[in-house]
Computed example of a mutant assay.
Amino acid sequence: MTYDDHACAADLAERAGGVLMELRAKAGFADPAALRGAGDRAAQEFLARELAARRPGDAVLSEEAADSAARLTAPRVWIIDPLDGTREYAEDGRDDWAVHVALWEGDRLAAGAVALPARGRVLATGTGLSVPAPVSGAAGAPLRIAVSRTRPPASVEKLGAALGAEMVPMGSAGVKISAVVLGMVDAYVHGGGQYEWDSAAPVAVALSAGAHASRLDGSPLRYNRRDPRLPDLLVCRKGLEETLLKEIARLEW
């Protein structure tokens, strides 16, 4: 892994986001289903083409492409979600969608970037990001937990009630984890089922920025598995994980 991988991830995510923004502006929002499909295809085609040119020896795992068992023995695997938050992408005025580009190398997340194109931001490893102190700053202020704006899991609602936390609805998983990195929320807790491409890039960024990231039982997040399903995770500011994991263990998920 070199700095070039950080830069590559950031550039690819940003440029794929540009493709999506251009398509969104050109197509409009009259046919959301068509826009969602076109966005997935356009971003996938761009990232596949660029990775093949820039990193021809590396394997790729993508939400929008057929999987190959060859990645399981590859030393370097790019894990991408060309458009995370397709629902939000196809809704006029929404900016809570993302592009994910991550590199799994040597049994760890070696680089990653999350582009938030509608917000004009790219969060990437290798750039000195650091999770800030709580925005509230006040002692005794409630924890803020990012949740799905359309289908928040009942288990997370129970966790929030037990902790007296404030639920903050947002779109894509990448946006929720980015919100932890940016200090907009304290934690993102998910137990409803996801895949590796949903979290690899944002988790890479979060870990690089000093956040905690794990499974809900506290075990490490592992990627490039035969089955790409990765059903649960916790991302939070350092120092909160013990409290959250203890409470999570008391609940039924």
Rank of each mutant, 00 (worst) to 15 (best):
H100F: 13
H100W: 14
H100V: 03
V101E: 11
A102H: 05
A102S: 06
W104Q: 14
E105H: 07
E105K: 03
E105G: 07
D107F: 00
D107I: 00
D107A: 03
R108P: 03
L109W: 01
L109K: 09
A110I: 00
A111V: 00
A111C: 05
A111P: 01
A113M: 04
A113R: 09
A113N: 09
V114D: 07
A115C: 06
P117E: 12
A118V: 04
A118D: 09
G120S: 08
R121I: 02
R121S: 12
R121E: 15
L123E: 06
L123N: 05
L123P: 03
L123G: 10
A124M: 06
A124V: 01
T125V: 11
T125G: 11
T125C: 10
T125N: 10
T127N: 12
G128C: 00
G128A: 02
G128V: 01
L129N: 15
A133D: 15
P134L: 06
V135W: 15
V135Q: 15
S136G: 12
S136K: 06
A138H: 11
A139Y: 00
A139G: 02
G140A: 00
A141I: 00
A141H: 03
A141W: 00
P142V: 01
P142K: 09
L143S: 02
R144K: 09
I145T: 04
A146V: 04
A146N: 14
V147T: 14
T150V: 14
R151T: 15
P152N: 10
P153R: 12
P153F: 10
P153C: 10
P153M: 12
A154Q: 14
A154S: 13
S155V: 10
V156I: 10
E157G: 10
K158R: 15
K158V: 02
G160P: 03
G160M: 02
A161H: 13
A161E: 15
A162G: 07
A162D: 13
A165M: 08
E166S: 08
M167R: 12
V168G: 08
V168K: 07
V168R: 12
P169W: 04
M170P: 11
M170Y: 09
G171S: 14
G171K: 13
